[in-house]
């Protein structure tokens, strides 16, 4: 039997479609439909399509504050995890001479991820708390008199927990793109008279761009879609976008939660598009 070219094309994309349609496209459509329905206030919904739920969200100051907070966490986490991830990957690729050792250390980076997210997050509490290890150590050394309050249940604690959770998502793609840099290319730059700083800015950073961008996509989309870390580490003092519509669901306001979800999805897609706009990952990878 001979298939025509069209059929072959569809067959080629069918595995992807089999995943994308039921797990992404259909749910999004369902959520969108829910977002234009109305609630009866008791968990039921009825069909009276309008964009009222959206206009309500856009009119509320709270929305903008929530997005500001969440984007702030995303950006801070991105900056710190990219910085740490870059240097860890750089160390593994360029300073560890033995390939085997580099691979071993790389695996060591993943060890913390053998326990659950929640345990890793909660384990910060005895460290950062008022009576925690850091405060007590600092008081014992005489560096401070009063315990530092900002360590736990604060924005600081939220960022620490995010960076701790997400840096691995930076290390892996950056390590991958750096490992593909031919050492002779670096040597050629030295031969041309490049200083360490020149090599960094003209060779290593540009050639690691695709890794940084991939890591950024992970970090941004995870932070934007998370509420649990914010809830626990801020001690309830800070809300987040997802946290807000989680509460909507708690009070059976499904349509407005659905509208918030659609807006968030669009925003994250725009952020990912912006990242891809800055770094053309496809071009970088095929280079």
């Amino acid at each position: 039997m001979k298939l025509n070219r069209n059929a072959v094309g569809w067959l080629n994309v069918s595995p992807l479609l089999a995943v994308m349609v039921p797990f992404f496209i259909v749910p999004i459509i369902v959520v969108f439909i829910a977002s234009i329905m109305q609630t009866d206030g008791f968990g039921g919904m009825f069909w009276d399509p309008s964009l009222e739920n959206y206009s309500y969200i856009f009119k509320s100051d709270l929305t903008y504050r929530l997005y500001f907070e969440t984007v702030k966490f995303a950006v801070l986490t991105l900056v710190f995890s990219a910085f740490i991830g870059f240097w860890v990957a750089h160390f593994l690729v360029f300073h560890v001479r033995s390939k085997l050792l580099a691979m071993g250390l790389f695996l060591v980076c993943t060890v913390p991820f053998w326990t659950s997210n929640i345990i890793r997050m909660i384990s910060w509490i005895p460290l950062l708390g008022k009576e925690g290890l850091i405060n007590r150590a600092l008081i014992a050394m005489g560096a401070i008199q009063e315990p530092l309050e900002f360590l736990l249940y604060s924005d600081f604690a939220v960022v620490v927990a995010y960076v701790h959770q997400l840096t691995i998502f930076m290390i892996v793609p950056i390590f991958n793109s750096m490992a593909r840099i031919d050492k002779r290319v670096v040597e050629a730059a030295v031969d041309a008279g490049a200083s360490k700083f020149d090599i960094m800015r003209y060779i290593i950073v540009p050639m690691s761009k695709s890794g940084i961008a991939l890591g950024a996509i992970f970090v941004v989309s995870i932070v934007m879609g998370d509420f649990f870390v914010v809830k626990v580490m801020s001690g309830g003092g800070t809300a987040s976008v997802v946290g807000a519509f989680y509460e909507d669901i708690g009070v059976l306001q499904y349509p407005s939660a659905a509208a918030s979800a659609i807006i968030l999805t669009i925003l994250v897609m725009l952020m990912v598009a912006a990242i891809l706009r800055i770094v053309d990952i496809r071009k970088e990878i095929t280079q």
Partner: peptide, 17 residues
């Protein structure tokens, strides 16, 4: 290399990709 005023052409060229 700069102080030596030498320049090297690398095996398989090592061009900046």
């Amino acid at each position: 290399p700069v102080q030596r005023r030498t320049a090297m052409m690398f095996q398989s060229y090592a061009l900046f990709p």
